[in-house]
Design a protein around this nucleic acid. Structure first.
Lengths: 200, 200
DNA sequence: CATTTTAGCTGATGATAATAATCTTATTGA
DNA sequence: TCAATAAGATTATTATCATCAGCTAAAATG
């Protein structure tokens, strides 16, 4: 039966949120339209009233995931401050992040699988990544090379988390997170904000 | 019809090699048993004479991929020398590696998808990663922290390549490779071997 | 050489998937 | 109020896939 405009919008938002969690948790191919619809409290048949295809939803779900996470990194504006960046990095390189991909970084959860996705997915990841880089780079007091440092920070963190998840619960998983935390460009970010101005 | 012992071994090796290339090129789930058998010049039915399951083959294919690559990093022994490490890093962070995952690093190609694979795949990736870390760490003159530096090198390179492939052919792809090449722990590895002793 | 074994082929089997068609009924817009 | 619309359910449709079963003929074994 038909729903009101508001109820329809709420359904759509529920689908995007369910997809955003399930894709990160189980992967893009392993998650079916029916899984997502069930998680959203609907049946699979109604899906195509909201989205033209699974791929279109996937791109939107990734965009939503990035939006959710940049809200944490820069709660009120267009740059991260020292404290929020420190918290972001510590959370990123934590066991909690390893264990909960469904609310974690979409790049770490989907990067290698998304290499085989259609252009809309590449665009969503590029846009989300760009926004992240920009937020981090703008938080650095010295603009010189700040963007390259932000790119390295993200590459190292994404790689560390992806590797840690890929090797399962071996000692290697925590070791790679710990090694990343001791990176000479990351370590200074973790000092108390009052002691040291931000370097990245 | 039945084949000789040698022909059977050759078939098996062809299957592993085809799988090793196809999994890295198209992903684990996107590659079917029939695709692999066809690439090996066989039909899909004979697959289970060689392997108990697709997952078992996948683990073996990943192990073979690591073996092939460590042969390049340390052609004759159990450690990389300065020259081979430099070549390895430059090749790793190159457009050629981006464009040819089928012969590239299995960790970069498969990490995030392998997070949802069975334990045998985790074990194969852990063993291959461990061997890589060891080879790189042993090449450092100062053992102190060499292992952690090797872990960071791998995390940064894996992350950079995975991100670059995930965002497609945007400017971001080459930018993240270039940023990784300028990492303060990576840059020294790329100087001429005679000028500077190895630092990682 | 006779017998057993088995590699690989052809062709099920059963599961799961994405997408589409149809139907019902409530909401919209006039 | 009434006709047009569309959200969501149910039920196809069409593919694809991993795995298995049976067949054939060649190799292994004795």
């Amino acid at each position: 039966m038909r729903q009101s405009r508001q109820a329809t919008a709420e359904s759509r938002a529920r689908i995007v949120e369910a997809a955003s969690h399930l894709f990160r948790k189980r992967g893009l191919e392993a998650t079916g339209v029916a899984d997502i619809m069930q998680a959203a409290g609907l049946t699979h048949g109604g899906f195509y009233r909201h989205f033209p295809s699974k791929d279109a939803l996937a791109a939107e779900a990734v965009a939503a995931a990035f939006a959710e996470r940049t809200r944490v990194l820069a709660p009120d504006g267009d740059r991260a401050d020292a404290g929020s960046l420190k918290a972001y990095v510590e959370l990123y390189l934590s066991d909690g992040h390893l264990a909960h991909p469904e609310t974690g970084c979409p790049m770490a959860a989907l990067a290698s699988e998304a290499a085989h996705s259609p252009p809309e997915m590449h665009a969503a990841l590029a846009a989300g990544g760009e926004r992240l880089i920009d937020l981090i780079a703008r938080s650095a007091p010295d603009a010189d090379g700040a963007r390259a440092r932000a790119l390295r920070l993200i590459a190292t963190m994404v790689g560390a988390v992806a590797i840690a998840r890929a090797v399962g619960t071996s000692g290697l998983a925590s070791e790679v997170l710990s090694a990343a935390l001791h990176d000479p460009e990351i370590l200074p970010l973790l000092e108390p904000a009052s002691t040291q101005p931000m370097v990245i």
